[in-house]
C-alpha cells in the first residue's frame, strides 16, 4: 500500500477523504448558488449551506495536511469474501423490492446471504429460514398491525 512508502509520504485514504470532502463542499455551494428563492426577512435558505460548504472545505484541507503527515489509522486487512456476500445480500434485497419480488423473498435473500457471509455453509436451509421469518413478519405487519410491507407474488397469496 502507498501508506507504507513513507518516502513519498502521502496517505491514500486521507487523500481520498480530502477529495470527497472538497467535492461535497463544492456540491453544497453549487446547490446553494442555484437557489432562486430567498427569504424576505432574516437569512435565507442559502446561508446555512454556505457555512456548511466552508466547513467541509476546511475539513478537506485539513485531511490534505494529514495525508502528508501521519495519515489515517491503518486498518487491518479485510475478509473480502464475507464483505462481498453481505453486500450482495443487501443489493439483492434492494433489487428484489425494486423489481416487485416482495418482502418475503427479499428477507430470505438478505438472511441467507448474511448467514453465508458469517461463515455458515447452508445457503438453501438459511434461505428457507429466511422465507419463514419473512412470512411471519409480513403476516404480523399486515394482519395484526395493518401496515403494508412491499408486496410480491408470495404476499399476494395471503
Amino acid at each position: 500500500m502507498a501508506s507504507t512508502s513513507s518516502a513519498k509520504g502521502a496517505d491514500i485514504p486521507a487523500l481520498v477523504v480530502a477529495a470527497l470532502l472538497l467535492i461535497a463542499a463544492a456540491l453544497v455551494a453549487y446547490d446553494a448558488k442555484s437557489q432562486t428563492i430567498v427569504s424576505t426577512y432574516g437569512v435565507g435558505p442559502t446561508a446555512m449551506p454556505y457555512v456548511v460548504s466552508a466547513v467541509l472545505g476546511v475539513l478537506g484541507l485539513c485531511h490534505l495536511v494529514v495525508a502528508f503527515r501521519e495519515g489515517l489509522p491503518k486498518p487491518e486487512a479485510v475478509d473480502s469474501t464475507a464483505v462481498l456476500w453481505l453486500t450482495g445480500g443487501l443489493i439483492g434485497l434492494i433489487a428484489c423490492i425494486g423489481l416487485g419480488g416482495g418482502f418475503i423473498i427479499a428477507t430470505a435473500i438478505v438472511f441467507s446471504a448474511t448467514a453465508r457471509s458469517f461463515g455458515r455453509q447452508a445457503l438453501a436451509v438459511d434461505f428457507g429460514i429466511g422465507l419463514v421469518l419473512g412470512l411471519a413478519i409480513f403476516l404480523m405487519f399486515s394482519k395484526l398491525l395493518q401496515l403494508t410491507l412491499p408486496s410480491g407474488p408470495l404476499e399476494k397469496l395471503f
Partner: peptide
Amino acid sequence: PWLYAGILVFAAMGTLAVKA
C-alpha cells in the same frame, strides 16, 4: 451468522415500515 442475519432483516424491516 443467524444473529447478524436477523439483525439485517430487522434493519430492512424497520426501514420499510417507515417508508416502503
